[in-house]
Design a protein around this nucleic acid. Structure first.
Lengths: 159, 159
DNA sequence: CTCGTCAATGTTATAATATAACGCGTCAAG
DNA sequence: CTTGACGCGTTATATTATAACATTGACGAG
């Protein structure tokens, strides 16, 4: 009857389709492997580490190795589909990848990391970005990108 | 005649003395090992990785091992004498440790990371801190600390 | 004194994260 | 048809960090 069926939830498949479209626009390819890795990242409630990703990937692709996932993550980050949370050495899907600009930067994002539930919320706060740009300028510093990771307890956890 | 001589430059020895004083105030001890590690971090022009630190430490202490430096770094970070630069997995001395407040936080600091010369400048920008606090609050997020790391080209390098 | 306790460090092993380097197949341009 | 770029496989290794347990020395209670 049916084929393998959808690998991911319909919502995520939609986002993957959108990502494929954006890739095509930029003259690059969202290969099956890349699509699968992105789907796994997007499916994770929490930031996912490269090796956790690798484990999950291996359920479907025998022989996947660290370079497999790191290469794909590099690709996805360069396109802005995925971000790395430095504090956690883990990766999150970008909720607004259509805003894409460039190499894991472009739209200045910040993360709210809940140390209780482990979830990470991405924001794009212009006031923070402006304050940072301003501070950089005052130091005569030519800013390329900024990492902003706020740790604490999220609304849901704090009750 | 003289003994071993000063391990570090006079300026750094002064800062180490000050650190020892602050430790005493807080009822903890800046042991010789801790003093030496802090001196090494302060002596480094650039952020220094734990294993680079370990190498240098070994010149004077045979048998130093990774836990040796990680434990000391934890101690120094808890006191605010040292910060970790997450983007680099490396450590910098805090220029204003007298402002100490607590566990590698307290006074909200930001880093300006020059990707050309590798130097890192620490700042304490209230506008950034305020913008972050404000954004957190708007998300109903109880902020505990924030990592802000700005990458680009420093004044000296950009000319 | 001497015992217990604690902070500090030593010691061994291993976990977790990330990259280097090379090979191989496909496919399109020339 | 061959050359070069891309995508991925494969093996090995580098880098960063922690777990777990042992030893030492200082110091107060008894």
């Amino acid at each position: 009857m049916s084929e393998t069926g959808l690998t991911f939830s319909p919502e995520i498949e939609l986002r993957l389709d959108e990502a494929a479209r954006l890739c095509a626009e930029r003259g690059v390819t969202l290969t099956p492997l890349r699509r699968e890795v992105l789907g796994l990242v997007l499916s994770s409630e929490q930031p996912i580490g490269a090796y956790a990703l690798l484990d999950r990937l291996r359920r479907r692709r025998r022989g996947a190795a660290p370079p497999t996932v790191y290469r794909v993550l590099d690709f996805l980050r360069a396109l802005g589909f995925v971000h790395k949370v430095e504090r956690l050495n883990a990766f999150v899907g970008c909720p607004s990848a259509s805003n894409y600009v460039g190499h894991d930067q472009g739209h200045a994002v910040q993360f709210l990391i809940c140390t209780r539930c482990g979830r990470v919320t991405e924001t794009e706060d212009d006031a923070i970005a402006a304050a940072i740009a301003d501070a950089a300028e005052r130091h005569g510093f030519r800013q390329m990108r900024a990492t902003v990771e706020i740790e604490g307890i999220c609304r849901a956890c704090v009750g």
